[in-house]
Write a protein that binds this DNA or RNA. Structure first.
Lengths: 334, 334
DNA sequence: CTGTTAGCGCCTTCAG
DNA sequence: CTGAAGGCGCTAACAG
């Protein structure tokens, strides 16, 4: 900045003004300074800037899995809304690991981010409370906060699980299995609980098939495990914790050719990602308004930032059932 | 930090030492200081830290489209390798827009990132050169650098386009269309050129159907445009610039029921994302080693960082043809 | 082993 | 409208 000032024949204060309040400097001084900036290739040092300002213009977003299109849609929604306010969004991936999440939250806190959006792995409330108490606005994403002091935007996963299972029951399935995990992830346990409540209400029972992560690959593995069983003891319907799992299961089942979806086994996923409609057997799913979740989370952040408590601290969207071929009623060949 | 020092009854220098070189401080002082840090909930201010150090421990990654699983795989590869070296990766989305890319590069440069990995939208070489000249190691990702002074890790897109088109020709197709765009994206123009060279060598011609972006949605739109044509003047094979486009086209074609893939129209994509194998008609594609690209890019960054020129500045991987049902030869019902 | 201190680069008064 | 100066929080020297 000193160099620019010298080059333009002005003082550093003036350069700073040109950068931050061009209106307060005479037009031709502005021009001269900008020419120098250009010529010297000067780039403001954000670290120093932040050090002074105390806060950055960047929002940090921590997601469970960057490979899950649901989260990239959330990111998109956040990016768009943030962009409207001159803020940038940087996305980081906790990979469903508490340890990585802590690392990233530390990073964001050390960087004194403008705000942080997190889909927490599990019980990180204490960690998050500290962040918030240090003055970094924090919004929980895709996670209902039971702590009233936390802002959150979520979808009712219990309800989503319930409608998925209810749908399978309505189409005549009785031996329903839930595939997904780990249950330490709230989304998983809520969807499972919702499904259980629906199945229990119908007097049935739900089988639980755990996975180590919510990935296509884990889904394939789970599918293979089901195929190893005797046909008589296989489920006649599967509710997968998300579409990635569902698509993996579907790949396994279809690849053998011996199992027909939906006649032998019906399948429903969760999230309704773009790819589900294009699957071998178009996949039924439970849709969540992903982009809206992202943009709403940024809205909450801005409210937290610029005032005290947001007007509506806990936003909960309703999930929506999307029926496709993978859950066609048995015998229905339409 | 002052507060922590006072609380622990030591000086700020000692606190700094505890944080950065615990070995140089007596064990019980360390313990005392850490207790104070804990109690006061102290979090180091990274802005100040960087200001002093001149550089951060974070790698910035700018991708063209976060919704494209290819890029999230690249991100994963980068994250993993970076993690091994105590570095974090923050991902940002240029959305194929020059303007957003510039904004993000400015952000990363202002933040004096440890290094930056970019898949440039188009001709941003000047912008990137400045970044590099300012001492921020920069690696081009998924983009061959013709400028020898730039490190890059890429896949030979021309070759990929060639083998895709050659494959379609081998299976007996003659009226081949390329769907994708904008051509200002190097990946697109290279794949197109490669395909053209193969088609030309066979004495044919390639039809070009442009799209505004490489998304599932644009693919659907392109598919609809093809359906509007008289069946006689439709292509008998489509090479899509990437799998997202391909899956979109596939959805359009299949939804009507009037067109059969691959008999009426064969279809091949690019990237071989996880979802392609699970498509209605399992999709043929050209595979790129996405994770490897990401980790290799970080390797190059580390070499640039810690020495002058990397041993192998321009790494080019070879793409690989993956054949599935969507390009089965006409009449082959196996 | 611990304490003191000089900046890192920028922004914002404040007096000219 | 300009110029000088203080300080944001931290680290690395250096002195004790």
């Amino acid at each position: 900045m000193r160099d620019v000032a010298d080059d333009a024949g002005v003082s550093v204060g003036t350069v700073s003004n040109v950068l931050n309040r061009p209106g307060k400097v005479s037009p031709d001084t502005v021009a001269r300074v900008q020419a120098s900036i250009e010529r010297l290739g000067f780039v403001r040092n954000d670290a120093a800037r932040q050090l002074r300002a105390g806060r950055s213009r960047t929002i940090g977003l921590v997601v469970l899995d960057l490979r899950n299109p649901f989260f990239t849609e959330v990111a998109r929604g956040a990016e768009e809304r943030a962009g409207e306010h001159g803020l940038s969004v940087l996305v980081a991936n906790s990979d469903e690991k508490q340890e990585r999440e802590t690392l990233l939250l530390d990073l964001f806190e050390e960087q004194r981010m403008f705000g942080v959006l997190v889909t927490p792995v599990a019980e990180s409330m204490a960690r998050l409370a500290r962040m918030r108490d240090h003055g970094i606005p924090t919004v929980l994403v895709d996670r209902e906060s039971h702590d009233p002091t936390f802002a959150s935007v979520a979808v009712d996963d219990h309800e989503g699980g319930r409608i998925a299972a209810a749908h399978l029951l309505e189409t005549g399935r009785r031996r329903i299995a839930f595939v997904g995990g780990p249950v330490s992830i709230r989304q998983v346990s809520d969807r499972l609980a919702g499904a259980q409540s629906a199945v229990a209400a119908a007097g049935g029972a739900l089988e639980f098939l755990g996975t180590d992560a919510l990935t296509v690959d884990e889904g394939r593995r789970a599918g293979r495990r089901i195929l190893e069983r005797d046909a008589a003891v296989r489920p006649d319907a599967i509710f997968a914790a998300n579409d990635l799992i569902a698509l993996g299961v579907l790949q396994s089942l279809v690849m053998t050719g011996s199992v027909h979806v939906p006649d032998d086994i019906a399948l429903i996923g969760y999230d309704d990602i773009d790819f589900s409609a294009a699957a071998v057997i178009p996949l039924s799913s439970v849709r969540q308004p992903a982009t809206l979740i992202g943009s709403t989370a940024v809205d909450l952040l801005l409210e937290l930032q610029s005032g005290g408590a947001p007007s509506r601290g806990h936003i909960v969207f309703r999930p929506e059932l999307v029926v496709r071929d993978s859950t066609r009623p048995v015998g229905d060949t339409s």
